[in-house]
């Protein structure tokens, strides 16, 4: 019974944060651009979330006649499903988790790889040149960035001696992994931005060149799924960064562990939005070059040095 409550709680929490991020992002972006943002609907403009949701639900959900219908319908669901599944492994507190998996990080990496299918299938089923280009870019970008996203986490895994996220959090009682694993953190963060295809790495949907990339043809709640999936992805990557490098729910005891995790998560969500506010989009080849020629060697080097030091200390 308690377990079901936690499952429902995590689901509701993730979806609420994802919906709330519509408002958070618009308000924060506007602050950084010297504007005010949506502040009319309800207190502080919070009703904007509700208004946007109602709008999305009541929009015409149109499937283009040239689309591959079953795949077209399936694709947005895969994205949300894979990301929501990954929320299961995040420990929100000492005994507040859905799934205490001993292969937690592998589960996350596997699910994030499956998430690519959503975009590739969505772009393919749209039967549209821009969507296809967006999907191709997305798959290449994801393949590139997933390689060292995994590698950058291996330093953490070696230090905690476990793939289990609960154990990793416990292992940070002596000090957060951000200090010994700073390079790992930087590489994982950049890979995380690319993984959620947020600006500056939103090349799959680059609206200046590709209309809206892989979701050009989507409307109504199917587009809403991609939309929510993106915000869920931001929340997930932020929560994972907090868990893996910043001690997760660890913190001084005047606040409950859950609140500590939320504070850290929202800090990184803020950074995600700050990146969007400040950085321009790189060219596609620059993105790939940066990935293969800078971040991959950096991740491997980090792995090598961490391993050497750990063996030396043993």
């Amino acid at each position: 019974m308690n377990h079901i409550l936690i499952i429902v709680g995590v689901l509701v929490l993730a979806l609420t944060i994802a919906a709330g991020l519509i408002w958070v992002e618009r308000r924060l972006l506007s602050l950084w651009q010297d504007r005010l943002g949506p502040n009319r609907v309800g207190p502080l403009g919070l009703g904007q979330v509700l208004a946007d949701m109602i709008k999305l639900f009541f929009k015409e959900d149109w499937i283009p006649p040239f689309a591959d219908k079953p795949v077209f319908v399936l694709a947005p669901g895969i994205l949300v499903l894979t990301i929501l599944l990954t929320f299961a492994i995040i420990p929100f507190g000492p005994h507040f988790y859905v799934f205490n998996s001993n292969i937690g990080i592998l589960f996350f990496l596997g699910n994030s790889s499956l998430g690519v299918y959503s975009i590739v299938l969505g772009g393919w089923a749209s039967n549209n040149k821009y969507s296809m280009i967006g999907a191709m870019r997305a798959s290449a970008q994801m393949l590139t960035y997933e390689v060292f996203m995994g590698l950058s986490l291996m330093g953490v895994v070696m230090m905690a001696d476990s793939f289990n996220l609960n154990t990793i959090v416990e292992a940070q009682k002596g000090g957060w992994f951000i200090i010994p694993q700073f390079i790992g953190f930087v590489v994982f963060f950049i890979a995380g931005v690319a993984e959620t295809h947020r600006l500056p790495f939103d090349i799959p949907e680059a609206e200046g060149e590709l209309v809206a990339g892989y979701h050009s043809e989507y409307s109504g709640m199917k587009f809403g799924m991609f939309f929510v999936g993106e915000y869920l992805g931001i929340t997930l990557i932020s929560a994972l960064i907090a868990t893996l490098f910043f001690g997760g729910w660890l913190g001084p005891s005047f606040l409950p562990p859950f609140v500590w995790l939320m504070i850290k998560t929202f800090f990184f969500i803020g950074i995600f939005i700050l990146l969007r506010a400040s950085l321009p989009r790189p060219r596609y080849d620059q993105l790939m070059t940066f990935g293969w020629k800078v971040l991959l060697p950096l991740a491997l080097l980090n792995l090598l040095i961490t391993g050497a030091i750990l063996i030396f200390l043993k």
Partner: peptide
């Protein structure tokens, strides 16, 4: 320069908004 850009954008948090609430 990338970090500087991010920092300068962050400082805009403390600027006055240009919006005229019509």
């Amino acid at each position: 320069s990338i970090l500087q850009t991010i920092w300068l954008t962050f400082l805009h948090l403390f600027h006055k908004a240009e919006t005229v609430q019509y």
